[in-house]
């Protein structure tokens, strides 16, 4: 006889109370980041030493700006999910753990926002 509640089994929720959603989100953002990262490195290495005019001409195209925004969103989402696990693994004080998680999450949101707004500025004002 299983002692797991039927509803818990149906929803696939284990002792972590959230099932595989964190694990799955980490994998999906990782899959998205494979092509985005390869594009990013190839793009950046072919624009080394660019001046401001060349930079705006490059990021000012909707295609490049769109890929940059996708890269930023996927990067900070993936970074938060990863850092969250590191914090949960190594910080054992409950209060310090919660404070760290909130600070890291806030930092990821703010940095992602600055990055995306900068790309949009280059797209619309460049």
């Amino acid at each position: 006889m299983s002692l797991r509640s039927p509803i818990g089994r149906v929803r696939g929720l284990g002792s972590a109370k959230e099932g595989v959603s964190h694990w799955w989100s980490q994998r999906m953002s990782a899959v998205a980041l494979v092509p985005l990262t390869l594009w990013f490195v190839a793009s950046v290495t072919s624009h080394i030493g660019a001046d401001h005019a060349a930079m705006t001409a490059w990021i000012g195209s909707p295609m490049t700006a769109g890929l940059f925004i996708l890269l930023i969103a996927a990067t900070f989402y993936h970074a938060y999910l990863g850092l969250q696990v590191v914090i949960e693994d190594y910080i054992h004080s409950e209060s310090l753990k919660i404070v760290s998680l909130v600070l890291i999450k806030g930092a990821c949101f703010v940095l992602a926002l600055i990055g995306i707004l900068s790309v949009l500025t280059l797209l619309f004002e460049g």
């Binding site: 930079m55 900068s118 004002e125």
Partner: peptide, 16 residues
Amino acid sequence: LAVGTLLLVYWLAAAA
């Protein structure tokens, strides 16, 4: 790499 995102964001913000 999470720390390195600071450089990426700084670079984009500087361009903007």
